[in-house]
Design a protein around this nucleic acid. Sequence first.
DNA 1: CTGAAAGCGCTAACAG
DNA 2: CTGTTAGCGCTTTCAG
Lengths: 335, 335
Amino acid sequence: MEVTIKDIAKKIGVSYATVSRALNDRAGVNAETKEMIMAEAKKMGYQPNAIARGLVMKHTHTIALVIPDITNPFFPEIARGVEEIASEYGYNTFLCNTNWDIKKEQIYLKALQEKRVDGIIIKPASDSEEDNLGHITVPVVLFNKILNDSKYSCIEIDNERGGFLATKHMIEAGYKKIAFIGGKPDSFSNTQRMEGYKLALQRYKYKIDESLIINGSFKTQSGYETMTRLIESGNLPDGVFAGNDVIAFGVLQSAKEHGLDVPNDLGIVGFDDIPHADLPQIQLTTIAQPKYLMGKYAVEILLNEIKNKAKKEVKRIILDPELIERKTTRGLQSW
Amino acid sequence: MEVTIKDIAKKIGVSYATVSRALNDRAGVNAETKEMIMAEAKKMGYQPNAIARGLVMKHTHTIALVIPDITNPFFPEIARGVEEIASEYGYNTFLCNTNWDIKKEQIYLKALQEKRVDGIIIKPASDSEEDNLGHITVPVVLFNKILNDSKYSCIEIDNERGGFLATKHMIEAGYKKIAFIGGKPDSFSNTQRMEGYKLALQRYKYKIDESLIINGSFKTQSGYETMTRLIESGNLPDGVFAGNDVIAFGVLQSAKEHGLDVPNDLGIVGFDDIPHADLPQIQLTTIAQPKYLMGKYAVEILLNEIKNKAKKEVKRIILDPELIERKTTRGLQSW
DNA sequence: CTGAAAGCGCTAACAG
DNA sequence: CTGTTAGCGCTTTCAG
């Protein structure tokens, strides 16, 4: 049997309230008895029961991070940020992987609430917010742009500006026929990146060619397949702005297999700046997001909302994207 | 206030025991009243309190996966495996990242136990088992070879054989001066891979040159730095077996920066076969581990131990590594 | 089929 | 400084 507060109380001959006080370092316990209690607790191998405590305290000191794809190196970076900061504040974090499956997300959200997590940080699998987050009663912060009247705080990169920057860079480097190979079509981030792309095209008087705008999923495989299709259909662009880096990897792969010279025959820019995008063999030009920081901020906002549940104010943090020029695009100088 | 079982009992005019029975689908409730209860529960937005339930039931239906580096793409693959399978069985999983920090691991293990997780799957940050896992009372399964008298189940690849295979491959491909650039020196996996390397060297009458055996950490940066040091010290090998793939990436990077032709001037083989090791620009020859499967098996063993806590038997699963020949080594044919 | 009551391990008034 | 007591929300005998 597990050793409880009562066992140690009995052993020492005090009431278990006293033991509780001692263990929790609360005032009003004689120094000597406290010491005895601590010693005995250690000796008996006492381990506080957070479940019981949670039941009375009404908080669990655990939060959840729900993400769509832990296999995309973008998310582990974020996860590291939230986890590290959370644990600094004494919180554990559940890491839930929805696999972009809205049903799975639903199930997680339900379980998380039943387990009484104190708050949730989520990158939704889909963006029809109300559908999914409707039943959540704990504080939530999203990695997503959110409708203006939303009751949730959020933090994200300015995706439209990112898309704009990426496309502008390719235009200025002299690419003429620029495709957008995107990810999940019903994702805000994706849409906004595409909007930025279109905006840049317009700004520079390029015409928007819908046959060059193709969405799929945020996977390497998807990038590979749609690029291959593009090449084999004869509708070959000389530049592609990919919805994210792993898609860009797929594009790169297809290009290589078809003997295309990157960056001369084909320029590529990605989004995220995941680890290994900077390997010399890859050298992917991309739009960087401050992943770790995003995780960090998200927890801080969340923890703050948890603490001040009463007077909550929704915060929206929009971060600046940054273009990282590497070798999958021609530089201006070479033009 | 949260709606509880009592609220809905009061509303309908039954005892809350009955409500409990109905909600949990237990026998002995009149069909009609059950329906009423279910309806009311939904209407009132009742959400079972898993904390309270856990307190009485003595289990939480949550397990933990503690890993050293979520940023190494090897681990997310495993994580996906455990998470998916666990959730199929109705378990949530805490994902904890120790960052190879044994103190952090300690803290997590403590918190996890206090939160009464039902079991723990862990790749220890260090390998002096007894030190770390001593206080754990719940079932544990390790991703690590374990002493023969250990009380824990474990599952892992045959690292020695992997190291052997890797080195043998390089020898047969004609490389003459093969270095081992390893990861954490006090890691079993690392040591075993090194043993396999030595074994192959001996088998083929190569002499073992300790100046060619260098450990560091399981990071790209570490691989990059030690390779660079090797090159700049003039002690240039013509082959390196890296402790894992991300190290190999670093080696690759250094090689490239120093104008070495891979695979002709330098052959490289990694370990793990992480995603993106197969990109055409990388094409890393490596030793594959069945990552997802390892995660899956780990949960299955764990869940089984949880169920049969009484008659537990320790299981040791040793999986076979597989050499994946790609382009960072010469093939036999080209020799 | 249903209700009463005990208790899971702990915290927090409230008395002393 | 310390003990008594009442719950937290739920499951589970044990009676009826």
